[in-house]
């Protein structure tokens, strides 16, 4: 990654290469998301990047109801990753209403609104 890339660009460049990376603070050892120039936990500024485990659980979820002619219902949820960070996303591969709190999920790089994005599918048992 280039030295001129800001935190958000680092995250998005990785996504464009089909990789999910997460920022971790070198001072307190905790991960955070969204990417930023400081650690929101201890306010340290030594941030390093690490491949995400991809393992997570649905923390909470909803179905956005929409008429079929406008694209139909879809899932919006908050996933908590094993690293302790949360992100908004959606679970694909099951009906939006079947996405349940605590469902184990696996991350993958898919596409949302025409750009690479972190999406999830139910974890293999």
């Amino acid at each position: 990654m280039s030295a001129t890339e800001g935190p958000d660009a680092v995250f998005r460049s990785a996504l464009a290469n089909n990789e999910i990376v997460l920022p971790r603070c070198e001072d307190c050892g905790q991960y955070h998301f969204f990417p930023r120039v400081l650690c929101p936990h201890c306010h340290g500024t030594s941030i390093s990047w690490h491949p995400a485990s991809g393992r997570g659980r649905v923390h909470t979820t909803t179905v956005v109801r929409q008429k079929p002619e406008q694209g139909g219902d879809y899932n919006v949820c908050i996933v908590e990753l094993e690293e302790g960070v949360r992100m908004m996303s959606r679970v694909e591969g099951i009906a939006p209403g079947d996405v349940a709190i605590d469902l184990a999920v696996t991350a993958f790089v898919g596409e949302a609104e025409g750009a690479p994005a972190v999406l999830f599918r139910p974890a293999e048992a």
Partner: peptide, 18 residues
Amino acid sequence: AHEAPYNPRYPISAYAMA
């Protein structure tokens, strides 16, 4: 920026998840 791509319906989706 990190929520918009998933098209939450604001503000309803947020309160629904709470």
